[in-house]
């Protein structure tokens, strides 16, 4: 009986351990080792921190990372500001069919690939696109307006892509908030603003934080949206990594970039958790 339990335990554990080691651990160790190599000649490599040194001393790379991080934070904040009322409506005000329909509508854009979604925005925003034509038709613009290839276009794309990942945790946490608690807030003299601030937001904090982490990480790691919508000025960190690996054949520097991205984004997330007084266990639990 005890042997049986143990066997079951091992059988259950094996896929997890295999998954962690084969798909997560080993590739990262390998990447890390690659990042420590320095090319000294044709086909010759030394072990050194030269790649990390390059990252830290080349202002372009640091600047690109900083820009990517700041844009991702802004995208996260905007996503939160839009998703919060939407989620509140879905979780607390909409009922029955309407509720599930609205939730499904948030999901629909994700049935098509990210590429198609981004193309959709390009069609809307380009100089000869729908929005530009609409503005001219309405007399708000006297010549074609280019809305593509700038930071605002990147932001639109990022927010659009991230929305679902903010709405889902928010709806889940908001649904768990008893309606009576909100009513009690009003009953005891609160108004819409104070009830939101003192009752709804503190209750939704784990959802807000976990949604924000996911959206931040997704934005930071997004490649397609910034490159396609950002055009000549996109300057996204993942683009640097891609070009080091694929265009420059410089895997060593690319791997170092990858690790810096992992390391710095972890620090940012950790800092945000500290700042908001949340813990990872509470957020993911």
């Amino acid at each position: 009986m005890r042997d049986g339990t143990r066997l079951g335990f091992i059988l259950l554990l094996t896929p997890l351990v295999l998954w962690l080691t084969l798909l997560i651990f080993i590739p990262h160790v390998d990447m890390f080792l690659v990042s420590l190599r320095e090319r000294v000649g044709v086909g010759q490599y030394d072990t050194s921190l030269a790649n990390y040194h390059t990252f830290l001393t080349e202002p372009l790379y640091l600047w690109t990372f900083l820009r990517t991080a700041v844009m991702s934070v802004v995208a996260t904040v905007i996503t939160l500001l839009i998703a919060f009322p939407v989620s509140y409506y879905i979780a607390k005000i909409a009922k029955g069919r309407l509720q599930s329909t609205l939730f499904l509508m948030c999901l629909i854009p994700f049935y098509v690939s990210e590429l198609v979604r981004t193309f959709g925005w390009m069609i809307l925003l380009r100089e000869t696109g729908i929005v530009s034509n609409l503005l001219q038709w309405a007399g708000l613009a006297d010549q074609p307006v280019e809305m593509l290839y700038n930071d605002a276009a990147i932001m639109i794309g990022l927010v659009y892509t991230s929305m679902l990942f903010m709405v889902v945790p928010l709806v889940t946490t908001l649904e768990s908030l008893d309606d009576a608690v909100i009513e009690a807030g009003y009953d005891l003299g609160g108004n819409a603003w104070s009830v939101t601030r003192e009752i709804v937001i503190p209750h939704a904090a784990p959802g807000i934080v976990s949604g924000s982490i996911v959206v931040f990480m997704l934005s930071l790691g997004n490649y397609l949206t910034p490159t396609m919508l950002g055009g000549k000025d996109s300057l996204w960190f993942t683009e640097l990594i891609y070009s080091q690996f694929i265009v420059r054949f410089n895997w060593e520097l690319g791997a170092a970039f990858g690790f810096m991205l992992l390391f710095l984004s972890s620090i940012i997330v950790w800092g945000m958790l500290k700042l908001t007084g949340q813990t990872l266990e509470k957020t993911m639990g």
Binding site: L60, Y61, W63, T64, K232, D233, L235, L240, S243, Q244, V247, R248, N250
Partner: peptide, 9 residues
């Protein structure tokens, strides 16, 4: 690569 990165930035 360096040139292309700087032009992009």
């Amino acid at each position: 690569g360096g040139v292309l990165d700087r032009v992009k930035a």
